[in-house]
Design a protein around this nucleic acid. Sequence first.
DNA 1: TATAATGCCTATTGATCAAATAGGAATTGT
DNA 2: ACAATTCCTATTTGATCAATAGGCATTATA
Lengths: 171, 171
Amino acid sequence: MKISQKGLYALQAMMVLTRRHTQGAIRIRDIAYEENLPEKFLELILLEMKNARIVESVRGAKGGYRLRRAPSEIRLSEIIRLIDGPLAPFGDADSLRVLIDRDAEHSALYKVFLEVRDAAARILENTTLADLIRRGPAGRSHPKAINRRTSDRKTSKKKKPEPTVLPMVAR
Amino acid sequence: MKISQKGLYALQAMMVLTRRHTQGAIRIRDIAYEENLPEKFLELILLEMKNARIVESVRGAKGGYRLRRAPSEIRLSEIIRLIDGPLAPFGDADSLRVLIDRDAEHSALYKVFLEVRDAAARILENTTLADLIRRGPAGRSHPKAINRRTSDRKTSKKKKPEPTVLPMVAR
DNA sequence: TATAATGCCTATTGATCAAATAGGAATTGT
DNA sequence: ACAATTCCTATTTGATCAATAGGCATTATA
């Protein structure tokens, strides 16, 4: 499974909609600005996610996009599958299972592929947009439940660090 | 991480070289025939794996390819990285770590990507060509250790308990 | 009701990559 | 000498990726 630039954009956009999901419809332009994404490209992505019923739109002036479900009900796997296809590193889970059954010579290999897929699926199916927002920004991955109470609002700083554009090194 | 057709071909070819790794140099044509792979394409793949010192070649008449190391010392991760690049679903492990440090707004997301990479790496680093051959064809993934002794037929001379790292990751 | 603001939709582009094919040069066994 | 083989570089074809473009449809509001 490869997550494309487009897939990353989609996930970033969904994080914005999650953070602001009490604020009604958010304009494409605002999302694009906030995350530094190409506006027209983002438009296509949002449209695709609307058709997949992950988000919904409000048309016309004062229009925009909002989540169609609670952030805790939207899994990263759903977004990634939509934009970038199956989680399996080769083919998809179903065709791998068929190959394991029908192609005895290579079943050991396909079984490993399926293991990899299952591992990725386990993570991505169990991480929701709500999880991402709760953890970040720069949050520790797995906050101790016992310490939840200590997250004192007085000490919480809404740090707005400069929208740093980072060089994304491929490869 | 996406495994391409080329990557699959590479892995298939390596499995052939593993099965026949006592037989000296194997011709490209034989591998291609045995696995039904496009011969000229396979040639390029083998060349690439030779340059990466995973296999070695014998030139001229009676030439061919053979593994350069024991099958138990060749991990699937090595082959896949060579042909298809990093195991991470986005970028590579190093750049993900940099992003987690430097891009606070998205660190939660990149952490998930890194988790996925680590899960794939755990499987692919711990599966060797020897493992694949021992398991297949159509073999069950996790043979009972208790039954290993029953496999001593007269024809089997291999009593070598290869120091292979074995099945991991509970289901 | 006119207008501006927005999303909807389809098409197009340029760059890159994937999968293969081609063909001659170099090397080696017989 | 010759045939069998790998080595190496180039080319091709089609698909995919990332992005841009522009007109249409819908809606709030002045």
